[in-house]
Structures are given as structure tokens and as C-alpha cells.
């Protein structure tokens, strides 16, 4: 009879069950993320909530002032000017971003020779640093030597002093913001290519023209992506900073004083940390409300293929 030899079972170090060992391993894996969140998100968030109730000027200690910072902001003309500038900017650029980038994506979705090259070219500006792009546009829009005005002069138009004229400065910033519209290209292209071609073929058989196909197939099928881009665009539009910081400094005469720039000035130019954190909380609440509105409205216009709606 053959003898059966079995190797002794290797015992784990701390006599832990498999379930417990897996739990420990899981905790170890998520610990960096949790610790990172606690240290770099939750702690600053709670600290800023506290600081918004204090008079804190970096040098020295924070002094509790209750809601005084919020009251100061509500009676500050420049605060309202920054709200106005940011609102105009957001109202202008969010639709422009959506429409222009979608139109560009539809063009880039054509099955033509060399399309990959065009896609790369249109995406390239999105990879450049905002500071570098701003420096570029400062010179392009220079009232005296800028290429934009030189080109306009060639066709007999005297261009304005784009960045130094209060009537044109914000318009110029909105114009510059379209530079990076290619950023959305991969998202749109991914979504466009996910639309079943059978739908278009069926529409063609039914005699639909290109506009009908866009209206009744492309847009509904893209609506979840449109919704995503809308929410993200609203958030980004309220964060306008780099362009105005670099190109106009908020001027001329506060014509481009965005909310984030004014927040920055309060924090780092005027050393009013308490006021700046109060501004950041007001912005947080405003963006939260806008996002909630967008989500609440989404059942009316966003189509999810797998979604079952109540009758």
C-alpha cells in the first residue's frame, strides 16, 4: 500500500483567517487614498470652513468674527463685479464650448483621408499650458503690434485695443477661451463612434436628411455626454483664473475681474485669508446649486439607453 505523504500546511503568521487577511490587505490598499483624502481634502475643507469665520491675515492668529466676512462680501461692490464678470463669462463660454466642440467633433468624425492628422492638430492646443497660451494671446491681441490688429488693418479695419479697453477686454477673454475647444474632442469622438450605425442607415432608408439625423439620432444618443460636459463646463467656467491673471490682471477697471481672481487677490495680495475662504465657500455653494439644477433637469432631456422610466 502506497503511503501518502502530505506536506504540512503552512500556517499564516498571525493565525488570521482568510477573510481577515483580505480585509487587512484591502485596508492597506485603500489607506493611501483615504489618508490622502483626509489630509489634503477633508482637513483643508474643514479648516477653510473655520477660517471663513475668522479674520486671518497669515501673519498673526485668526480671530473669530462670526459671519462678518460674508456680510462684508455681500456689501462689497467688487465682489458683485466679480460675480457679474464670471456669470457673463460662464453664460457665453459654456454654450460656445459645447456647440463648437461638438461641431468640430462631428467634422472630425468623418471618414476622410488624413483625419488623424487633423484630430491631432485640433487637440494640440489643449495640451499647452494655460500660462503659455495666455502669453501668446497677449501678443496676438496687442493693440499696436498684435497680429490680430495687423490682419484687421490689412482689410481696412482699425482693431480695438483688445485687452486694454474695458469694452473689449472680457470679450477677448471669451474669445481666447475657445482656443482650447479641442480638449473635448476625444470625449465627443468616443461618444459619436459609440452610436450604432444601424440607426443612421434606418434613418436614411426613411428619407432623413443630415439635419434630421443629427436632431433625432446624434443629439439624443449624445445627451449623456452633453450632460457630463455641461456640468463640467459650468464648474470650469466659474474657475476662470489663468487667462485673466496673466492677460489683464482683472482690468482694465475691473472689466475682467473674475471671481477666482478676486478670491486670489483677497488671499494673496491683501492677505485677507478669512475673506478669501468665505468667497470659496460661497462659490462652492453656488456651483453645488447649479449642478443640482442640472441633475434635476436631466431626466427631461438626457436619454440613457439602459434606463427604464416609470410610466
Amino acid at each position: 500500500m502506497a503511503s501518502v505523504t502530505t506536506r504540512p500546511r503552512k500556517r499564516n503568521l498571525f493565525h488570521l483567517s482568510l477573510q481577515r487577511r483580505e480585509a487587512i490587505a484591502c485596508a492597506c490598499f485603500i489607506a493611501p487614498a483615504v489618508l490622502g483624502f483626509l489630509a489634503f481634502s477633508l482637513f483643508p475643507l474643514t479648516t477653510s470652513a473655520f477660517l471663513s469665520l475668522t479674520d486671518y491675515r497669515l501673519a498673526g492668529r485668526p480671530h473669530f468674527v462670526g459671519l462678518a466676512n460674508y456680510a462684508t462680501l455681500l456689501s462689497d461692490n467688487l465682489f458683485w463685479q466679480s460675480v457679474r464678470v464670471t456669470s457673463i463669462y460662464a453664460l457665453a463660454v459654456v454654450p460656445l464650448w459645447l456647440v463648437n466642440s461638438l461641431a468640430l467633433a462631428i467634422l472630425m468624425n468623418q471618414n476622410l483621408k488624413g483625419m488623424h492628422l487633423f484630430r491631432t492638430i485640433y487637440y494640440l492646443p489643449a495640451m499647452l499650458s494655460g500660462v503659455a497660451v495666455s502669453m501668446l494671446w497677449i501678443w496676438l491681441l496687442n493693440g499696436r503690434y498684435g497680429l490680430v490688429n495687423i490682419a484687421l488693418r490689412m482689410i481696412g479695419i482699425q482693431g480695438p485695443n483688445w485687452l486694454r479697453d474695458p469694452r473689449w477686454a472680457l470679450f477677448s477673454i471669451i474669445m481666447v477661451s475657445q482656443w482650447s475647444v479641442g480638449w473635448y474632442l476625444p470625449i465627443w469622438l468616443g461618444a459619436l463612434q459609440g452610436i450604432p450605425t444601424e440607426l443612421y442607415e434606418a434613418a436614411e432608408i426613411d428619407g432623413s436628411n443630415w439635419w434630421d439625423k443629427i436632431r433625432h439620432i446624434t443629439l439624443p444618443m449624445l445627451s449623456p455626454v452633453i450632460f457630463y460636459n455641461l456640468v463640467m463646463n459650468i464648474i470650469w467656467a466659474t474657475q476662470l483664473f489663468t487667462e485673466v491673471f496673466m492677460m489683464t490682471g482683472g482690468g482694465p477697471r475691473f472689466a475682467t475681474l473674475s471671481y477666482m481672481l478676486y478670491l486670489y487677490q483677497n488671499a494673496f495680495s491683501y492677505n485677507k485669508m478669512g475673506l478669501a475662504t468665505a468667497m470659496s465657500w460661497l462659490l462652492f455653494v453656488a456651483v453645488l446649486l447649479l449642478t443640482i439644477v442640472a441633475f434635476k433637469s436631466s431626466p427631461m432631456w438626457v436619454y440613457y439607453e439602459a434606463e427604464r422610466r416609470r410610466p
Binding site: 491675515r57 487677490q265 492677505n271
Partner: peptide, 19 residues
């Protein structure tokens, strides 16, 4: 002397002088 060198010029003086 409060290290806040720019608020009054930036908010009030410069824009007024420009006007």
C-alpha cells in the same frame, strides 16, 4: 504696515487715476 500694499491702490487709486 499691514503687509497689504496693493489693496487701496489696486481697488481705488489706480482705477480713479485712469478715469
Amino acid at each position: 504696515l499691514d503687509m497689504n500694499l496693493w489693496e487701496f491702490p489696486g481697488k481705488y487709486l489706480d482705477p480713479t487715476v485712469q478715469q
